[in-house]
Simulated scan of single mutants.
Amino acid sequence: MNRFIETILAQRLILLVLGIAMIVAGGFAYRSLPVDAFPDVTPTLVQVFTETEGLAPEDVERYVTYPVEVAMNGLPDLAEVRSTSNFGLSVVNVYFEDGTDIYFARQLVNERLQVAAEEIPQGFGEPEMGPITTGLGQILFYYLKDETGSYSLEELRELQDWVVKFNLQTVKGVTEVLSLGGYVKQFQVVIEPQALLRYDLTIADVLEIVEANNANVGAQFLVQNAEQYVVRSIGLAEDIADLDNIVVKTVDGTPVYLRDIAEVKIGGEVRQGLATSNGQGEVVAGLVLKLIGTNTSSVIDRVKTELAKIQTALPEGVKIVPYYDQSALVGQAVSTVTNALMQGVGLVALVIFAFMGGVRPSIVVALSIPFSIGFAFIMMQVLGVSANLMSLGASPLPSA
């Protein structure tokens, strides 16, 4: 053993090169590590959401949640199934054993959802899987600020859903963008009961007629002079006038229009919550969720870059204002660990110099700390451990 150690110590140049290579490789490994504020200890979880229209919790449990739970039983590596049935919403949490690949788990759940959908009564909602994220995936929050005061909550929500959210979901590393506050724009048909009696109609009749007259239909093609002409039947309603002119019935050759039995207006979807800013009124906000395993700081940087581009497409006076940015927390966590590491290197070198009375031993021990940190980063990359306050804080301990 002594001969082995003496042989290694005799090859000083090789040891120096290996040490430098280890430090450089550790630096490259650190750059490729997912950087988070805290370790994500969320279990392998797939959530199934089903939105229903006005069903009580008891009915949601019986007709929606139970069929989904039964369909999930017997999946490979399944740990447990939990559920919550609320008014108009069913949430089923499918937990898998630790170490199960999240994409494999989602594939299994998706296959069983086809079975569950067949057991749910028609009109009670379609089960869908939640985003591929965790509880620590909420990386950036923002709201739309109307500096002119000329935009309604419906208009701001429309900008959020069709401009901001639509473009943010194309950013690499973003799995979902959630919208909060405002009103989802709707064309609301307010039917007059007396008009239904007058024209012998029911609400079901009106609903069926409006649905049938609000769609584009393909009409094949015509061939003329060796040329093919595509025929389109455009019937999709684009404004209130289009809906007002829908014919719901004909009486003695006279058409009865939708405007004759109802008032069509623009309104907001019924909601059960709202978003406020500093208690000064309602706002429309957005939550950006990152994909599991991605680098938080890199994703946030790309989101900020995209937000700057989206800002140029918004109407004048409407601003995107971020109010929570997880990169600040991540930066503070990494800065804390970096400062502790530098202080540790200095203190270790100082203590060794004080007790051993030599500069050379102090330098050797101090240089061993970056070597061990580089090795730790390489192993973190191999084992899939993210760089966070816990993992980085523990890395200098072996050498200190």
Rank of each mutant, 00 (worst) to 15 (best):
M1P: 12
M1V: 12
N2I: 14
R3P: 10
R12G: 06
V17L: 14
M22W: 03
A29R: 08
R31T: 13
S32R: 15
L33I: 13
D36L: 07
T44F: 10
T44M: 11
Q47R: 14
T50R: 05
T50F: 01
T52H: 02
A56Q: 13
R62Y: 07
P67R: 02
P67M: 06
V68S: 04
M72A: 12
R82N: 07
F87A: 12
G99S: 04
Y103G: 03
V109Y: 00
Q114Y: 05
A116H: 09
A116C: 13
E118A: 10
E119R: 13
E126D: 10
G130N: 03
G130D: 01
P131R: 04
T133Q: 04
T134L: 11
I139Q: 00
I139K: 04
L140P: 00
L140M: 10
Y151A: 07
E155R: 10
E158V: 03
D161K: 13
V163D: 06
K165V: 06
V171Q: 05
L180N: 03
L180D: 00
L180A: 12
I191E: 05
E192M: 07
R198E: 06
D200Q: 11
T202C: 08
D205V: 13
N214H: 02
A215Q: 15
N216L: 11
V223H: 01
E227K: 15
Y229V: 15
V231I: 15
S233P: 05
A241V: 10
A241C: 02
D242A: 13
D244Y: 05
V248L: 11
R259F: 05
R259Q: 07
I261W: 05
A262E: 07
A262P: 13
E263I: 07
V270N: 00
R271L: 00
R271E: 01
L274H: 09
T276D: 07
T276L: 15
V283D: 05
G286Q: 09
L291W: 08
N295G: 06
E306I: 07
E316T: 09
Q326F: 03
Q343W: 09
V345H: 01
A354H: 02
V364R: 12
V365H: 06
F371V: 15
A376F: 05
M379C: 12
G384Q: 10
N388T: 06
N388C: 11
S395P: 00
S395K: 02
S395W: 00
L397F: 00
A400C: 02
